[in-house]
Amino acid sequence: MKRLSKHTNKEIHKLFLSFLLMILLTALAFFLVLYQLISPPFLIVLITFFALIQIVIQLDRFMDIREKEGGYRLTSLIGGSFVALLAIVFLILL
């Protein structure tokens, strides 16, 4: 029982840390844009990178994408992203 509660605390901590990190990244991106501290092209790359980290956190920490059949789950996501990316690229190139 004691081990269980210790385990629980650890889990909650993990979730909370992920959440904190996400809020932090969002706030950072927000302030960077608000005060325009960096030159635009680099800024866009940076905040896109922040967004990617957040997505990975959500998928990994909250959505258990790696659990057991992670293979199929990831495949489904990659397939969708591949088609979505093609669509985005060629719609931008329009």
Partner: peptide
């Protein structure tokens, strides 16, 4: 707008 958007999406 841009009518080509329809063509792209439709053929995707």
């Amino acid at each position: 707008g841009n009518p080509l958007i329809w063509q792209h999406l439709f053929w995707i």
